[in-house]
């Protein structure tokens, strides 16, 4: 009996030790530096969880996140239950709507709390009014936000308010930025970066993030000037 108690005591301490390793594990945390943007042209856009910025968001209905508008179809079929889909309105620094983006996302299959964190893959179409269109493929690690805000809020069952800034970029480019592929307009044919920076200001344990601002940076290589192209030829 005493042997069993000693073994169980060791087991529980071992589990607690492993949990501490996972909690403080630097491999799955947020890297100290955001991805370095390429030398070229960058543009910033803003959006948030407010209905004015995110007019449509849908998922299986089993998540904590709000769905809107009220009558939007749920993604209830078992084959698409892991997905969420949304439409964002992109605003410039003055708050003017300058484009729109569609984002479809799912938890990544190679999520690994020990080495990579909790990963979310998303694919985007970004349309900038009268300017151009691009695809973006992005991977983000949401574990630091879950660890610092969501899990404590769920555990205490109390809403959180404050300010947390995070840049969860985790690929798929080697510099950890998302990959931007130009489709048309001034972005046609360009291969660039997309990085999402977030500012979380309120979290409700019942419905998840309630005040979340997104600041997206699109960066593309400097287009070659016509003179330098003809000189090179």
């Amino acid at each position: 009996m005493k042997s069993l108690v000693v073994f169980l005591a060791g087991l529980m301490i071992g589990v607690a030790l492993a949990a501490a390793i996972l909690w403080f594990n630097p491999l799955s945390g947020e890297p100290r530096h955001a991805p370095v943007l390429m030398h070229g042209v960058s543009a910033d856009f803003h959006a948030s969880l407010r209905a004015e910025d995110l007019p449509m968001l849908t998922h299986s209905g089993a998540r904590r996140l709000v769905m809107r508008p009220e009558s939007v179809p749920e993604l209830w079929e078992s084959t698409i239950e892991p997905l969420d889909a949304g439409m964002l309105l992109l605003r410039d620094a003055d708050g003017q709507v300058v484009g729109t983006a569609s984002r479809i996302a799912a938890a990544a299959r190679d999520t690994d709390l020990l080495q990579r964190g909790i990963l979310v893959d998303s694919s985007w179409i970004i349309s900038l009014d009268g300017v151009g269109m691009a695809f973006a493929v992005q991977r983000e690690n949401v574990w630091p936000m879950l660890r610092e805000i969501a899990l404590p809020a769920w555990f205490r069952r109390e809403p959180w308010q404050g300010e947390m800034r995070f840049t969860p970029a985790a690929g798929p480019r080697e510099d950890r930025a998302g990959r931007l592929l130009g489709i048309a307009g001034v972005l046609a044919g360009l291969d660039g970066q997309m990085v999402g920076n977030y500012r979380l200001r309120a979290f409700d344990p019942a419905i998840g993030p309630t005040v979340l601002e997104w600041h997206g940076v699109l960066s593309v290589p400097q287009p070659e000037a016509p003179d330098s192209v003809s000189a090179a030829r």
Partner: peptide, 30 residues
Amino acid sequence: FTRLLFILGLLCGCLGLLALVTLVDWVDHP
């Protein structure tokens, strides 16, 4: 023997949880 049992339990708990986290496919889409 008691010390050995304690260390064995510690290792089982620690490595077991880490193995569970690493080896199990937590995200398995249809």
